[in-house]
Amino acid sequence: MKVGEYVVQEGLYYTKTHEWLRVEDSKAVVGITDYAQRNLKDLVYVEFINADEEALDVGSVVKAGSQIAAIESVKATSEVYSPVSGKILELNRKLESNPELANKEPYGAGYLMIIEPTDLKADIEKLMDDKKYAEFVKQEAASHE
């Protein structure tokens, strides 16, 4: 569905900080939303680091709400937060050389990582579904008019 110019993909779960989560075979695929990429525009670099600026890798343990990446747009650095707790199974390292993937296909090839969740059900309860997120985006967009 679309909210103004922003695409909100159906069937995903969303955070207030504009990350999405898709459940695939009880694993969590994580990325940034179309709203996030449109507002950041021109993504130029992605680093998988936590709030202590330590590099994250496959096997690193992350907590819901903790920083999992720093995304650089031309103007600024933005932190990305994990929607789930768990262990990193895969990092989308293509973003390190082609960060624009997250601009072009935020819900597809521009995903950030795959996480093996420790308590998926509990984490999902704290997230928004597509309809709630669409409403949230509407409000966010209006407040920035």
Partner: peptide, 10 residues
């Protein structure tokens, strides 16, 4: 400081 658009991404 910023990204330099003349240089490769990153």
């Amino acid at each position: 400081g910023s990204y330099s658009p003349l240089l490769p991404k990153g």
